[in-house]
Every structure is written in structure tokens, then in C-alpha cells.
Amino acid sequence: MTHHPLAAPGRVALVFLAALSLAACDAGAKKVEDAKPNALRVVAAKPTIKAVTEWDEYTGRFTAVESVQIRARVSGYLTAIHFQDGQMVKQGDLLFTIDRRPFAMAAASAEADAKVADSTLGFARQELARAEVLRKSDTVPERTFDERTTTVRQGEARLAAANAALDRAKLNLEFTEVRAPVSGRIDTHTVSVGNLISGGDTNATLLTNIVSLDPIRLTFDVDQDAYLKYVRSMQDGSRPSLREGINTVRIALPGDKGFPRSGKLDFVSNQIDRGSGTVRMRSIVGNKDLSLAPGLFAKVQLAGTAAHDAVMIPDQAVSTDQGARVVFVVEDGKARLRNVTLGPLIDGLRLVRDGVGAGDVVISSGSQNIRAGEAVAVVDGPSGAQRNADAQTGGVIR
């Protein structure tokens, strides 16, 4: 068999190229193997330290500061209604008019009776004055003098009674105009013009009612445990007295974002309700826009603590282990499990009462597949110093 002179060198070249390719593949595999991470990558950072005030939340209901049922003080036929149902009225505004004519005539008659009594008394006093002059000369008997003195006293009494009857008649005439005793929003009228209404006693006809709106009250019930917490905080000086101090409440209506309204606590009941174990509290709330109405429900928050520095972590860092609340922290490059005692969620961060300190590095993302003691590598997490600096610039959470 005849061989070409270039066959052997060509084969050698092919073998050499194959060897180079295999070497390159081995080097690439080694580089990938070296780059493969040995630790689970997680996002972690030190807790945020914030000055916070913890707020306790309750359900409250608005009530009017003044609520008045409007009833007539005299009986008669209703002749006029001077308001539109549901409008705002001011104290002293005329609301209803009752037929004035019978009361005007009664007042005129009483005034005439008073004039007669005054005239009769004047004549009796003149007679008494003459008797006093004649008595000095013993011209008038003692009995006559006593009789004229008695006549004057009786005349004074009759005049006083007549004047009282006149005042009563004028007052009844005044009561034919039913006026608003307070400022506020009036309800619908319950009696139409032309009806005979009763007045002056417990069976008086209800005409309408008025509730004041600005300011308005918000009442809510606090359980006895929270009440005792407030009392103890007052005793150790960490919060003002519920009754004597200035306590601000925050208020939110359904649909509100956050708690945009506020009020001042102005009343705390003097006893715990035996049935519910709660104490009634009340705040006074401004209502310049008249948007709040008696009967509305609202969420109300009362400061449960004074402002204090708190350890805050992302809420997603918290998980549950056999019913206990836990977080993972990074210690010596490994994930360690910590039991924690949690507080409320404030501005997206969870308050930690116990279990985590300011110097711990808490895993906030990537903890789903972590086992305690497993090696971890922290990546892409904001520095704790930066987070703390950002938080402290915000001041006290309100």
C-alpha cells in the first residue's frame, strides 16, 4: 500500500488541534466550577432604628355636643314653618309660628287687669294718707286707720298678681314663636301647617330636632387592660394623665388613607362598665367642613406609649416556626434562627420588642429555603447605617 508523503504530518496536526480544544474545554469547566457560589445568596441589613409612638386602635362613634328636641311650650294651631328641612340654623332663628291671636288677646286683658289693680291701689294709698293726717288729731278712729292700711296691702297684692298674670300672658305670646335654642343642623319638620299642636308639658308635640356639628364628639370604649397600661404609664411619667393632660387622638373614616383627622381627649368615665369590662372615653373634634355627622363610625387611635427609639425590620423578614415568630440573622457567615416578640406595623416596618438588636444583620429576602446554620452570602442589601440615617431624619411617627 502506497502512502502520501504529507499524510503523517496532517494527522499529527489534527491530533494537536484536538488536544488544544480539549485543554480549552477543561480550563473553561474549571473556571465555572471556581465561580460557582458555595453560600446561599440573601438580602440582609441591620434593623432600622426609629423614634416612634405606638398607637392603640379602637372603634368610635360620633355624637353631637348638643342635641335638642324642639317642642312647643303653648298649644295652638301651627301657622308657619320658617326653615328648609336639613338646613343649618343659628341659635335664635325663628323656626315655627303658632297662631298668636288668642295669646295677644290674653296679654291685652292681663294688661288691663294690671292697670285696674294699679289704679285701685293708688286710691287706697290716698285714703290711707288722709287717715294718717286725721289720726294725729284723733279725728279718725283707730279701726278706720287699720282698715285703710289693710286695703292698701291688699291692693299691693292684687297689683302684684295682675303683673304676674301679665308677664305670663306676654311669655305665652312670645312662646308662639318657636326659635332655635342651639346652632346646628335641623331635621325634617314632623308637623305641617294647620295642625293643632300641644305644648307646655311632657306630652308636648315634637316638632323637629337640632344637632350641633362643630365641634363634634367621638366616643369609644377602651378595655380594662389598656386602661391600666395608660394609668401605669401616667404613674411612671412616660405619658400624660388621661383626665388632666393633653392627649391627642387620631381619626380615620372608612376610605381614608392613614389617619388624617385629629382630636383632643376631653372625658374619661369614672368607672369600668361591669358588663363589658371597658371604660368610656370621649374626644372633641373640629368639624369646620361639617362633613362629620352624629352616628358615623370611625377608627380612633390613642397613643399607647411615649415616643421612644424602636428596632424596626421589614415585615417580610418575619416567618413562623411551630407557632413562634422568628427571623434569620447572619452570624459568622451563617443563618441563625431567632425567636422575636413583635409590635405593630408602622410605616411598612415591623416593630421588634425583643429578639433582635440594632447590631444584628437580619435577612429580609431569600429566607424561604434557608436552614438554620447554613452558610449565606449577603448581596444587594442597603446598609444598616444608611437605613438608620434615613429613618432618623423622619422623626417621631405620628
Rank of each mutant, 00 (worst) to 15 (best):
R11F: 06
V12I: 12
V12W: 09
L14P: 00
A19D: 00
L22V: 06
D26L: 13
K31F: 03
V32I: 04
E33A: 15
D34G: 02
A39Y: 00
L40M: 12
L40Y: 13
V42E: 04
A44V: 03
A45R: 13
A45G: 12
K46A: 04
K46V: 03
I49A: 07
K50Q: 09
K50M: 05
K50R: 14
A51I: 08
E54K: 10
D56W: 10
D56Y: 13
D56M: 15
E57W: 01
T59Y: 03
G60H: 13
V65H: 12
S67L: 01
V68D: 06
V68H: 06
R71H: 04
Y77D: 11
Y77T: 15
L78K: 05
A80L: 01
F83N: 01
F83Q: 05
G92F: 02
D93L: 05
T97L: 06
I98S: 02
R101N: 10
M105Y: 12
A107R: 06
A108L: 14
A108T: 12
E111C: 00
K115N: 06
A117S: 02
G122S: 07
R125C: 03
Q126D: 15
Q126S: 09
L134D: 09
K136F: 08
K136W: 05
D146C: 02
T151K: 15
A157V: 03
R158E: 13
A164T: 13
A169Q: 14
F175K: 11
T176D: 02
G184T: 08
T190L: 15
T190Q: 15
V191P: 05
V193L: 10
V211G: 07
S212A: 12
P215N: 03
L218D: 03
Q224C: 04
Y230V: 04
V231S: 07
V231D: 08
S233M: 01
R239L: 10
L242P: 01
T248K: 11
P254Q: 11
R261S: 09
R261T: 06
G263Y: 04
N270L: 08
S283L: 01
G286F: 00
N287G: 13
K288G: 11
L290Y: 09
G295P: 07
H308L: 10
H308M: 11
V311C: 02
M312I: 02
M312S: 04
V318C: 04
T320M: 06
Q322V: 06
F328L: 06
E331S: 10
R336H: 10
R338G: 14
V340P: 06
T341M: 13
G343T: 01
I346A: 01
D354Y: 14
G359K: 11
I363V: 14
Q368M: 08
E374Q: 15
V378G: 03
V379T: 13
D380A: 14
A389P: 03
Q392W: 02
G395R: 00
I397N: 14
